[in-house]
């Protein structure tokens, strides 16, 4: 068991998002968070990756309280949020170089290869603000090709990607899972990866019970 959440309570603008919410993520599975807009998917992911303290309850990373192992957790987790963290005035390569500095679990040596894999070969010297939305998304997602972190937390990773891009990322997720990694993601898209590895969690049902 990699990550466990116990008895999570979260309230936002006087509206209860989660109450008594528990879940766990095991090695080698994809947890797909489903829910309508405003059901708290992003809030949940931000809590899980340590970007929000606005909750009550306990989160465990490998059976230890998250607060006590934060720095180890940050090294073992990769988060790609709504905002991809790509700087417009830096080139794709400079952006990735900076990301490898921030996150030591990213492989510094294969940046060029990752850019080729996400289809940005030939664009590595272009400032990111002149790339299209989908291409900027690809720069952020190129981190997945460099990562050796066991847990990936992806918030709507397929936004703005074309069909080919989506299927490439799905293949990458399937490969990561087959190596024993785990993925928590939110998407409205039907994932085409082996069904037995996907575990959906529906936040709408959670709210009703």
């Amino acid at each position: 068991m990699l990550l466990a959440v116990k008895n999570l309570f979260c309230e936002r603008d006087e509206r209860i998002l989660f109450q008594g919410f528990s879940m766990q993520v095991n090695a080698g599975e994809v947890v797909q968070i489903i829910g309508q807009n405003g059901s708290g998917k992003t809030t949940l992911l931000r809590i899980l990756c340590g970007l929000s303290d606005a909750y009550e309850g306990e989160i465990f990373w490998q059976n230890e309280l998250l607060d006590e192992v934060r720095s180890h957790y940050y090294q073992s987790m990769l988060y790609v949020g709504h905002l991809s963290g790509v700087k417009g005035s830096l080139t794709a390569e400079e952006n990735l170089q900076w990301m490898t500095q921030l996150d030591s679990s990213l492989d510094k040596c294969s940046i060029k290869k990752a850019l080729k894999l996400v289809g940005l070969y030939g664009f590595e010297d272009v400032p990111c603000h002149s790339l299209s939305a989908g291409q900027q998304r690809r720069v952020g997602l190129a981190r997945l090709y460099l990562s050796s972190a066991p847990l990936w937390i992806l918030d709507e990773p397929f936004t703005a990607l074309d069909k080919k891009g989506v299927s490439e990322k799905e293949a990458l997720i399937a490969e990561h899972v087959s190596r024993g990694g785990s993925v928590i993601l939110t998407t409205h898209h039907d994932l085409s990866i082996p069904k037995q590895t996907i575990r959906p969690i529906n936040l709408d049902e959670m709210a009703r019970t």
Partner: peptide, 17 residues
């Protein structure tokens, strides 16, 4: 400001550095 707006600041906060 700009690091906050493009999400770089989030990544800095969840870095082990």
């Amino acid at each position: 400001r700009s690091d906050y707006q493009d999400g770089s600041l989030e990544q800095m906060l969840i870095s082990a550095e």
